[in-house]
Design a protein around this nucleic acid. Structure first.
Ligand code: NAD
Ligand code: NAD
Lengths: 205, 205
DNA sequence: GCGCTTTTGTGAAATCTTAAACATAATATA
DNA sequence: TATATTATGTTTAAGATTTCACAAAAGCGC
C-alpha cells in the first residue's frame, strides 16, 4: 500500500476520473491528456496531475494517460476491482428504483440484501430480492460480512437503522434520509439529498 | 441585497443549516447555539458563525440563535421562501420515485412538469402528472418560466436534454445521469451519482 | 539524429478555507 | 448591583488546496 495521508478532497475526485475514463474506454479511445480530461470534467489539468501524483506516475510525457491502464489503477486505488455486496434498507419508492438500477454493476457494487420493517412488505419479492425483516439486519448483515449499506428509510427511522448497521459491522453508509446521523469513528457516511443541491443553486438565481 | 461575493463553499453549507433548523423548529425548540448546532452537524461552531456572518448578525450573545428567525433568514438568503416550480425529465424508476417524493414541499420546490420521450409513456398519467413529450420541453418550460430542472434520463440522453432545458431558459439543473454535461456560463449544474459516493468511501475500507 | 512540440510530475507561490482567540454583549446568579 | 458565565461576531493565525511554472521525457517530422 503506497499512498498514505492523501487529502479526502483528492479521494473525492478519483471516482469522477474513473467514471470519465470508463466512458472514454467504452468509446474506444486509447489515450487522453490531463488537459482533455480536465476539459471534460471542468477541472484544471494541473489538479488532475497533482491528484494522481499522490498515488504514483501513470502518464507518459508528450502523450498523456493510457485510458485503460489509468482506469485499472483507479479501480485498484478505490478498491472497486471486485463487486462488493451492499445492503439496502428501505423498500419504498426510492429503494425500488435503487434495486432496479443497472448502474451499480460494473462499478464495484451489487445490492444483495434488502430490508424493510413493514410487515406487508417483508417476505414479498421485489425484482430478484426477497424483502427481509429489518429486525434481522444485525445478524444477517454481520453473517455475510457486508461492509456497505444504503439507507432509504424515512428520516425518523434513519438513526436507528444506522445504529443497527453499525452493530452489524458496516463501515460505509450512503444515507438518503434528510438527516445527519451519528456514527462511531471509523464508520463513513455520505449523504444524498436532492433538496440540498437544489437550494445550493437557488442561491444564485 | 447585501452579501456579495460569498464563497460557494459557504453557500453549500447553508442548506444543511436550514435543514437542521427546520428539524429543530418542528421539535419545538426555540434557541440553539453554534456549539450545539455544530455538534449535530459535525461542523465546528466557529465555522457556523463565520458562515452566517457573511450575511448579517442573526444571533444574540449569551443566548445563541432564535431557531425560527434564523430559519426564516436562511430561507430568504437561499431564496426558497416560496415554492418554485421544477421540471422533471425522465419518467423511469427514479423519475417516479422523485414524483412521489414528499420531501420537496415545504423546502422550496414543487415538481410541476414531467417529460419523457417514450411514446408509450407520453400522455399517460403518473400520480398527479401527465407525462409530456420531451420534444416540447423548449416551448412549455419557457412558457411557464421555469428555471429549475431535474434530469433523470440515461447518460446517453442527458446532454441533449440539458441542451433543450438550457434553451428553454433553465438556470439550475440537478443531474442524476452519471455524466458531466456542458452548459453555458450562468447555468448551474449539480450532480447526484450514488456510485461516486460509494467509491469515495471504499477507498477507506 | 535533431530540432520542435507536447505533456507529465512536482516544487514553490498564491489563494482559499478553517480554526483559534478575544473583545463585547447578554444573561444568570447571588 | 456586582460577578460569573455563556456565546456571538470578528480579527488574526494556521492550515489546506489550487495554481503556476518549468525541467525532463517522449513522440513527430524531416
Ligand atoms: N423518493 C425519492 O425520490 C427520494 C429522494 C430523496 C430522498 N428520499 C429519502 O429517501 C428515504 C426513502 O424515500 P422513499 O420515497 O422511498 O420513502 P417511502 O416511504 O416510499 O419508503 C420508505 C420505506 O422505508 C420503510 N421503513 C420505515 N421505517 C423503517 C425501519 N425502521 N426499518 C426498515 N424500513 C423502514 C418503509 O416501510 C418504506 O417501505 C426518505 O428518507 C426520503 O426522504 C427519497
Ligand atoms: N434508478 C436509480 O436508483 C438511479 C440511481 C442513480 C442514478 N440513476 C440515473 O438516473 C437516470 C434514470 O434512471 P432510471 O433508473 O430512472 O432509468 P429508467 O431507464 O428507468 O428511466 C429513464 C427514462 O428516461 C426516458 N428517456 C430516455 N431518453 C429520453 C430523452 N431523450 N428525453 C426524455 N426522456 C428520455 C426513458 O423513456 C425512461 O422513461 C439514469 O441516468 C441513471 O443512471 C438512477
Amino acid at each position: 500500500m503506497p499512498a498514505k495521508d492523501v487529502p479526502d478532497i483528492v479521494v473525492s475526485r478519483l471516482p469522477l476520473y474513473l467514471r470519465a475514463l470508463s466512458f472514454l474506454a467504452e468509446e474506444g479511445l486509447q489515450v487522453i491528456s490531463s488537459k482533455e480530461l480536465g476539459h471534460k470534467l471542468g477541472i484544471s489539468p494541473a489538479q488532475i496531475r497533482k491528484d494522481l501524483s499522490h498515488f504514483g506516475e501513470f502518464g507518459k510525457q508528450g502523450t498523456g494517460y493510457n485510458i485503460q491502464y489509468l482506469r485499472d489503477q483507479l479501480r485498484r486505488i478505490l478498491k472497486v476491482t471486485e463487486e462488493r455486496e451492499v445492503a439496502l434498507v428501505g423498500a419504498g419508492d426510492l429503494g425500488r428504483a435503487l434495486m432496479h438500477y443497472g448502474g451499480f454493476a460494473g462499478r464495484g457494487f451489487r445490492i444483495s440484501l434488502v430490508f424493510d420493517n413493514n410487515p406487508q412488505k417483508i417476505g414479498q419479492k421485489m425484482g430478484p430480492f426477497e424483502i427481509l425483516d429489518s429486525e434481522s439486519i444485525e445478524t444477517i448483515v454481520a453473517d455475510r460480512g457486508i461492509e456497505i449499506a444504503i439507507v432509504a428509510v424515512p428520516a425518523e427511522a434513519a438513526q436507528e437503522v444506522v445504529d443497527a448497521l453499525v452493530r452489524a459491522g458496516v463501515k460505509a453508509i450512503l444515507n438518503y434520509a434528510p438527516i445527519t446521523v451519528k456514527v462511531p469513528e471509523g464508520v463513513h457516511v455520505q449523504y444524498i439529498d436532492p433538496v440540498i443541491h437544489l437550494q445550493r443553486m437557488t442561491y444564485y438565481l
